[in-house]
Amino acid sequence: MAVRKSTSKPNISPDELLKYYKDMLMIRRFEEKAGQLYGMGLIGGFCHLYIGQEAVVVGLEAAAEEGDKRITSYRDHGHMLAAGMNPDGVMAELTGRVGGYSKGKGGSMHMFSKEKHFYGGHGIVAAQVPLGAGLAFADLYKENGRVTFTYFGDGAANQGQVYETFNMAALWELPVIFVIENNQYAMGTSQRRSTSSPDIYTRGAAFGIPGEAVDGMDVLSVKEAGDRAVNHCRSGKGPYILEVKTYRYRGHSMSDPAKYRTREEVQKMREERDAIEHVRSLLLTGKHASEDDLKAIDKEVKAIVNASADFAKESPEPDLDELWTDIYA
């Protein structure tokens, strides 16, 4: 992977590093629990897990300021947790209960939080790309200095509307960061089989949008690149592209047997490149935390996730009258 490695890490304090660890772990444990609930039939339909990609959203959220917006695809649980949304509300939406962020009417792929500036959760591949540019358009119109993180995958990067959006975002200098989460597989089709360019961010050059590839298994690299992107956007220079090279350990969705890649390939990533293990070793070798400290964090995270699962099971299904609400404002 032609990616920029994080070279200097002096700006990251031990506390921040601990927070990254905890936030990434939260996503992983949450997703493992979601997988478990899916297996039990408590979560239905499509459920796309984020396991393996945690460093992407945690690193970029560390670069965001209050009021910045984010929007993504259907693989959205990690983004919501990283944005500070309540795990109870996310899990209860997965189980289709009234305590969910959309009162059970959106599901795994369609969740939103105006309070946390999270604009979905979109089920149509790449539809969120112009939408994200539109959020940035509104911010530029209001001149409020906010930026929008618009996440999409390597698969979405082949949709035409992405390039329609690149053109207008560059033309109108919209404060939008296009984050291409390249997990190397568009469902079951590898990047090699679907995408003409090995580095997708280079496509921005055609529109005059600067960009870079980032090691998405290293949260510090992601944070550092996120800072560059945010500075660029917030200073009024228009859009920026981050192609974050990452990897999903699980199938595309819960129903994907993932026969398109070898078990060894996945195992190798888990063993050699895991983002959480990476931070864990940084914490331990830097003596910023002891094994016991980390165990305590693990325990705390597990308790939050278990509580969210309990909440999601106990929260009632929406009232039948909810069928007819929220169609019109």
């Binding site: 929007i71 112009p130 939408l131 539109g134 358009f137 509104a138 119109y141 209001k142 329609e164």
Partner: peptide, 26 residues
Amino acid sequence: NKRVIDTPITEHGFAGIAVGAAFGGL
């Protein structure tokens, strides 16, 4: 031209940008 905006010929794209702008309060 801040409020009357000529777009490129790109219906899918500018419709999506407008929907996003509506989400964003315009």
